[in-house]
Design a protein around this nucleic acid. Structure first.
Lengths: 143, 143
DNA sequence: AATAAAATATGATAAAAATCATATTCAAGA
DNA sequence: TCTTGAATATGATTTTTATCATATTTTATT
């Protein structure tokens, strides 16, 4: 459902949400260790996210990655879409092209409600929403 | 979440549930087309399911694959476990080893209930249950 | 301006999943 | 018991995903 790459990207963004801002940028090498993802790998993912303006960055000394106020309001789904593409999550769980609410495949009624629920959550929850949970102590870090 | 292979296997088993029994076996070549999966591929998956006694088969003329009464009472989850292995579905959706109900990762509370729901359904629904839906007209085929 | 420190672009390699191919074994019917 | 039709065992190939490596570009500092 979610690729490894998407999960890594989410972890990295959440880490940035908690540990960066316009004034305090974070370098890849300081991200990769705490979130436990190889540096070269997460670097590539972060670059993709920058290109799509999900996160921000500057190069050179004092440079690094960070989230600004706009970035914080992106949904988790936006991250996934950049990394995995739009299609992956939007197809029938059984991958039947012809399957839809009108003509549900045999597993549709079993899987569909939970699945929609997940998708709706990923769409509606912003980065900010998620880290709020962490700060309230309802969830934990490090990732 | 579910691999392609698992989905194919589920489709094949449901097809067999509707179109076979001890007396009327179905050959791979007559399965692959209607469920729209390459013959050599589905053959391999079916063989794995036979080995684990999720479905039945006999070779030679008049041979083929079929489900008996016992097979019909297996859960969908049993199919998935044979094809994908047990672990895949039982790990945190964010793949954090340390994540659990006590110490939920930031996405745990968002994803977990829906996820459990899907798993419980896959565990409790038998092949028979699912095809009943089809026969009642609440779901459609072909796959 | 020169230097150094960071991201960026690009692409190579490795591992896993999906797909394809075929020789072997077993069962039924002539 | 011979032949034929089926699954089975085995493994090769292709594609996708994950991972690693590095030369280039940009920016801050001296």
């Amino acid at each position: 459902m979610l690729s490894n790459s998407s999960k890594y990207a989410i972890k990295a963004v959440l880490f940035l949400a908690l540990n960066s801002n316009e004034k305090n940028k974070v370098m890849v090498k300081d991200i990769s260790q705490p979130i436990n993802v190889p540096q070269a790998y997460i670097a590539k993912l972060l670059q993709a996210l920058v290109k799509e303006k999900i996160i921000s960055s500057t190069r050179g000394p004092k440079g690094g990655f960070y989230l600004d106020e706009i970035n914080l309001n992106h949904s988790i789904m936006n991250i996934v879409n950049v990394i995995d593409g739009e299609k992956k999550l939007n197809s029938c769980m059984m991958s039947l092209k012809k399957c839809n609410e009108e003509k549900p495949c045999p597993l549709h009624n079993i899987l569909s409600p939970s699945r929609s629920n997940i998708l709706n959550n990923l769409k509606s929850k912003t980065i900010k929403d998620v880290i709020k949970e962490v700060k309230l102590g309802n969830a934990f870090l490090p990732l």
